[in-house]
């Protein structure tokens, strides 16, 4: 049996924050506490990919177990309930009420401890980055911690046999498909139109009520006050990127002059001749 762990992060829906709001916030802190949280989109692609893999695995005679883990607040358990309703077997929340940001080393450390303490996994599936931090570090850091290979920019996972999966992933100038020996970490890239399927209310009633495992951070041997731990990068300053467009008026005697100015000042170098 292939046992797959899907790791996901719940992030604020940044689209809900208005332009004024971005601009008004003081330096060093974006208050996203009032914004509705969503599944980080790359993680969402990964979870749906796991379900598809599981749907198809029957044809290959490869039994699959899907588990999920997330670090965060109680609110995140709604997503774990959804995953239960969709057929996941074990769902765990690593309890953390604090908002930890810009600290991927911490996340990877906790996940690796969690994996050391639970049963063996053959495959870890996770998004390649989260929309708020945009570091893309956790999958590689976890791979380093576990001493596993990591394939990034994955767009499709196909069953092969009990010791291998076939993976399609994006590279600089195209796509590669390889047979990958397990265990391995798959970091999910841009997969167009991949939304997590929606469980029916019946499935929620029948399967979604299963107990969610809760793990405390100190039980993983990590101090909850993070003593002795320090991120690779410490945030010094945050400033808003002006998204407005200036609307500079290009004047000229006639259309020819304006076109000439447009080309020389703005298009040259920006577009190919």
């Amino acid at each position: 049996m292939i046992r797959i762990l899907g790791s996901f992060k719940v992030v604020p829906d940044l689209d809900q924050i208005s332009e004024e709001e971005w601009a008004s916030d003081p330096a060093n802190r974006i208050d996203t506490s009032y914004v509705k949280k969503i599944l980080s989109c790359y993680d969402e692609s990964g979870l749906e990919m796991m379900l598809k893999f599981s749907d198809e695995s029957g044809d290959f005679g490869v039994p699959v177990q899907l588990d999920a883990v997330t670090i965060g607040r109680k609110m995140n358990e709604n997503y774990l309930k959804t995953l239960y309703a969709l057929g996941f077997t074990e769902a765990t929340r690593i309890e953390c009420e604090k908002e930890i940001q810009f600290w991927p080393e911490w996340t990877a450390g906790i996940l690796s401890e969690f994996m050391n303490q639970t049963e063996r996994y053959d495959l870890v599936v996770m998004g390649n980055r989260s929309a708020d931090e945009e570091n893309g570090k956790v999958p590689f850091l976890l791979a380093e911690e576990l001493g596993w290979p990591c394939i990034s920019q994955v767009v499709e996972i196909i069953p092969e046999d009990e010791a291998h999966v076939k993976v399609r992933y994006e590279v600089d100038n195209g796509y590669c498909t390889s047979v990958v020996q397990l265990p391995c970490i798959l970091s999910i890239g841009d997969v167009p139109c991949s939304f997590l399927r929606v469980p029916t209310l019946k499935d929620r009633m029948q399967k979604g009520k299963k107990e969610i495992h809760r793990v405390k951070i100190e039980d993983l041997g990590i101090s909850e006050t993070f003593e002795g731990l320090q991120p690779d990068l410490s945030l010094v300053n945050l400033e808003v990127i002006d998204q407005s467009r200036p609307g500079v008026i290009l004047d000229g005697m006639n259309a020819e002059e304006k076109a000439e100015k447009l080309y020389q000042t703005y298009l040259k170098g920006r577009v190919e001749l």
Partner: peptide, 13 residues
């Protein structure tokens, strides 16, 4: 907190 409603409304797409 009324701010929750105000911010939601302000960012309502």
């Amino acid at each position: 907190d009324p701010k929750l409603i105000e911010k939601w409304f302000g960012g309502l797409n």
